[in-house]
Amino acid sequence: MWIYEKKLQYPVKVSQCNPMLAKFLIEQYGGADGELAAALRYLNQRYTLPDKVIGLLTDIGTEEFAHLEMIATMIYKLTKDATPEQLKEAGIGDHYASHDKALFYHDASGVPWSASYIQAKGDPIADLYEDIAAEEKARATYQWIIDMSDDPDINDSLAFLREREIVHAQRFKEAVEMLKEDQGKQKYF
């Protein structure tokens, strides 16, 4: 089971209302390389992976939900005081028409989240390589958003999330090495 903790993983502060930045950030909420995709990818793959790496996928998958909540908090705080007119100017009038200020799982262009973003091959090496790539793509996305953002408070939280992607990629690479060692001993595969 899962246990919710009533706190953010890392503080999220917002300098000022900025619906345009929220529009970009939703890429990491419901986009192909976003936090929802990451959490669901790892927590689904873990059931059929070798025992040695199940713990890692469980823990990283769980952390992704904490990241999802951080992104949601950013979007919530960046839009909560915006007028419909400001949302329209920021290019999220079409979001507002359907969802008001509620969050929804879609990317920065409004394309709804899809399970086709993720894969589970039942092959540990294939799955872990996908996971490494996913972390690197998420890291790159955080960088592109930081490059467009002039909110120092948001950028602090985004830099934290960008660094987490690097750590996750590193741990997944170590997991690959652990499995390759076993392959050498012909214990696995």
């Binding site: 706190k7 953010l8 993983q9 890392y10 503080p11 790496v53 713990g55 890692l56 823990d59 990283i60 952390e63 750590v167 996750h168 741990r171 170590e174 997991a175 652990m178």
Partner: peptide
């Protein structure tokens, strides 16, 4: 206190992921 807890939880999380592979 919340910031201190977030910092300590971060240490625990980092050690958890590290120990998963070490």
């Amino acid at each position: 206190s919340m910031e201190e807890l977030q910092a300590v939880d971060f240490v625990i999380l980092e050690l958890t992921l590290y120990l998963d592979t070490h």
